[in-house]
Amino acid sequence: MAKGSELKGRIKSVENTRKITRTLEMIATSKMKRAQDRVIAARPYARALSDVISSLYSKELEGDFPLLRQPKTVKKAAIVLLTSNRGMAGGFNANLIKEARTLIKTLESEGTVVELHVSGKKGIGYFRYIGRAMVNQRTDIGDKPSAADAASLVDALMTQFAKSEIDALYVVGAAYKSALASPPHSQRVLPVTPPDKSAGGQKDFLLFPDAGAILSELLPAYVRNAMYKALVETVAAEHVARRTAMKAATDNGGEILNLLRRTYNRARQANITQEIAEIVGGAAALE
């Protein structure tokens, strides 16, 4: 019967783990829905901004704006890596870190100095472990990133870019395409790539005060919005990944539980059968 009680203990333990994973799955599901809503709510702003920028932008303006500066050689680049503060999300953080490492490798092989800005405990933990210096470490951006969070990440970098202290800015996060596809994604945010001309309506607008002043106001907003978009999409992708991982864990727990229960019952039955055989044997011996 020693085997029986040992199995009982294991069944109990798997049941408890399964309770935790199932709860985490449900939490992730509800957070995922809210994060998805936030991704969708951010779209009209992005669209309006790129419509106007694309209709005002022309190639000749490039020299007038520090954010449109196209450096011939990229001496120094900054990478902002977005990861989550919590684990239990399958390969989510590992994939983001891998994407960032690939980007760092490519840039460094071209002779670029890369400075690293990391948001999220998981990314920070990894780069601290491999002993790579990080310029900026942020753990304060949680489940509900705001436009202000995005600004606090990117404003200093925009100033540096305008002053030619860095020549490029990349953001590594997850691109949220749908609940099923949210691959890691690196994106060059600076220098600004103006949105496609064909996207915006080619209208002759009355401009107040003038195209230059409007653009100098909107280009930083465009960069901040790119950052904000990356933040909300990464959060949505995190919850999607966590939900998937926890669902798989719950399912696996169920399978293990079935197996353990079967083994336990078999042991119990064998025990009973043996006892009966002993009794019958004992009774037969008395006759």
């Binding site: 106007v52 607008f205 401009l207 409007i214 106001e217």
Partner: peptide, 28 residues
Amino acid sequence: APMVTLLGTGTVRVGDGPSFNVSGGFLQ
């Protein structure tokens, strides 16, 4: 007429709808 103008700091009042406090941005 089609127009784009920068906004200052102040209010945006929609005819018979709500009003908003706004700072920066643009109106198209």
